[in-house]
Computed example of a mutant assay.
Amino acid sequence: MRMLINVPESVVSDALRGVAAAHPDLTVDVENRVVVRRDAPVADKVGLVSGGGSGHEPLHGGFVGLGMLDAACPGEVFTSPVPDQMARAAAAVDSGNGVLFVVKNYTGDVLNFDMAAELAEDEGIRIAKVLVNDDVAVTDSLYTAGRRGTGATLFVEKLAGAVAQEGAPLERVEAVARQVNESSRSFGVALSACTTPAKGGPTFDLPPGELELGIGIHGEPGRERRPMMTSAEIADFAVHAVLDDLNPTAPVLALVNGMGATPLLELYGFAAEVHRVLRERRVPVARTLVGNYVTSLDMAGCSVTLCQADEDLLRLWDAPVRTPALRWGI
């Protein structure tokens, strides 16, 4: 195993100590595993909290800051955080206007965020929850009942975070988050398996010269396995799968996402093919984001997420954001 770690047992804590050192505008509780924007709670503002297993960085801790999340709860690698973490995060960011939980549709996350909501509500904190379930590849998987939550999580956190930053009430922030999720679809492709620190080897078997279409961010099986395809062929398959389900009637936000080990040289080439397919399908693209944002440790591969966006959502996308992983308009 060749990994830049000390021991597998301390990977998450070590990473959080690094986040604290690199980003003094965040408050990082390494022991309790909660990342909070330093100025929280922000007066008269709805708090946004998300979280999930570590290994998907920069999701979620890299999206904590002005215009996005107020707090994030990292679990162990590919393992849900526990309810106490989430309840602690909610208490840290609640200004009296309530807190929105953004939850990816994985069984552990759903159950633990439900328990955390009960704990927070017992303390007098108003909680709303939005489930992200954008993956069109499969209906059920090893980790989910229903569709998995993947790349649309970034869109939900950015757009709901922007409207919360404007001072909107909890009901409005929740409504925007639901609109974004309902308007988004994703499809992912793996060119290699990922390696968890605890296992020290590939999490699934993917023979040389083959790829997995419709993979999940934990290495869950996809729709099918095929011989290696070109970037253009992958874009054709992935974008058509998304569009056939989404059927957009307005311009889209496009996220061309790397799974952790795919260099930007390849991702930008893939982005060109994604745009080609969208032009062929006569789908206008309003904004494009390219990079490693919702990852799976060292997996080589990519995902495409499209979000149908009206003028209000485009305005919220362009609104200022200042986080470790996203920053513009500041």
Rank of each mutant, 00 (worst) to 15 (best):
N105L: 01
V189T: 07
V110N: 12
Y268I: 15
R282N: 05
A15V: 13
A175R: 09
V136A: 15
R276W: 01
S231L: 14
V321I: 14
T150Y: 04
S183N: 13
G161K: 10
C73W: 15
S141R: 10
L4C: 13
A152P: 01
A128P: 09
I125Q: 04
L267V: 01
P202F: 02
A175W: 00
L154V: 14
V30F: 02
Q165L: 08
D312V: 04
P83Q: 06
V82Y: 04
E157K: 10
L100A: 13
G75K: 06
L142I: 00
H60R: 09
A117M: 06
E174Y: 00
E121W: 03
E123Y: 06
R315Q: 10
M228D: 09
Q165Y: 09
L206S: 07
T249N: 11
I5N: 10
L213I: 12
R178K: 15
T139F: 05
S296F: 07
V163G: 05
T195W: 09
G149Q: 01
L4R: 13
T150P: 00
H60V: 10
R172S: 03
I215H: 04
L316R: 14
H56W: 13
A20M: 13
L59T: 12
A168P: 03
G65K: 06
L191V: 02
A72W: 08
T323I: 12
S231D: 13
A241F: 04
L289N: 02
K199V: 09
I125S: 03
E31W: 08
D318Y: 09
